[in-house]
Amino acid sequence: MITINVNGHQQTLDVPPDMPLLWVLRDVLDLTGTKFGCGSNLCGACTVHKDGKAVRSCQVSIGDAAGANITTIEGLGAAGEHPVQAAWIKEQVPACGYCQSGQIMNAAAFLAANPDPEDEEIVRAMEGNLCRCSQYVRIQKAIKTAAETMKTGGAATNG
């Protein structure tokens, strides 16, 4: 039995300890907002927060996540009210949308650590998140919009 906290809920799970967190979230806990893209730390679609830091959930075994606080897109701001989510709507970022949970989770953790980023820092932070629809111009713009909102009081609650 492995215990983790997902989006504020304590979960005790009977799963093999080497099962990736990604598949636990998707197939066991039905949190399908976290997406499978490459399984090899190459695309960022499965990004979640582990104790506040962005991790690729395909690379973290559930055994290694035991005892951790995990935040998924469903827990970032369920109504889409997190400043990063709000900025994603304002700038009309998603196209197909499949990579966007990972993009948003990566951006939210990045902004929590670096609230006033330079353009190059944004690019460096987001380089591992592939968007096949190439909505990169909008992602960059939305991260700046979110940073602006968070500076002026729209505080982010970052799991």
Partner: peptide, 19 residues
């Protein structure tokens, strides 16, 4: 776009999410 809110909060269901 009407599909965008669902795509920023994880509720948009893609084929791979069907169970």
């Amino acid at each position: 776009a009407l599909d965008i809110p669902l795509k920023v909060n994880g509720t948009a269901k893609y084929g791979i999410d069907f169970k």
